[in-house]
């Protein structure tokens, strides 16, 4: 066991974890933050995307001990006081989800994309989301939602 401290969605946590614990597993099982989901075993699907020190990562492919001392932001940190963040509102407005399983990862990666490129073309949106898969294949509306979010200046 190793003792780790990290800030998740603005709150500092200190816990003992097994070295092999994945960041996503720590978030879900130890902190109860089940908004971040697991869709594959192969680092392909992006459903588990969170921000580590402000950049998007696949939390199934980061050890919790690697995130010791760092700052994590999950989909659960997006809304404030029950108000949807602009990226969430855009996904809602554009019907950018069907089953919703890919949505947390899609939104976290969209925010990373918009932080780097606040006014992306459709092509750039598709490339920026290439590490995120939607098994319902609703990509058209996801691209639309990111475009709408860009229009409202949703970079955070």
């Amino acid at each position: 066991m190793t003792r780790i401290t990290m800030t998740v969605d603005g709150v500092s946590y200190t816990d003992d974890v097994e070295n092999r614990t994945l960041l996503v597993q720590y978030l879900r099982e130890q902190l109860g933050k089940t908004g971040t989901v697991v869709g594959c075993d192969t680092t392909n699907c992006g459903a588990c995307t969170v921000h580590l020190d402000g950049r998007s990562v696949k939390s199934c492919t980061v050890l919790a001990v690697q995130a010791d001392g760092h700052e994590v932001r999950t989909v659960e940190g997006l809304a404030t006081d029950g108000e949807l963040a602009p990226i969430q509102q855009a996904f809602h407005d554009c019907h950018a989800l069907q089953c919703g399983f890919c949505t947390p990862g899609m939104m976290m990666q969209s925010l990373d994309l918009l932080a780097e490129n606040p006014d992306p073309t459709d092509e750039e949106i598709r490339e920026g989301l290439e590490g995120n898969m939607c098994r319902c294949t609703g990509y058209q509306n996801i691209v639309k939602a990111v475009r709408q979010a860009a229009g409202t200046g949703a970079q955070s």
Partner: peptide, 9 residues
Amino acid sequence: VADPQVRHR
């Protein structure tokens, strides 16, 4: 190489 998330790590 890969995708943005993988390129960050």
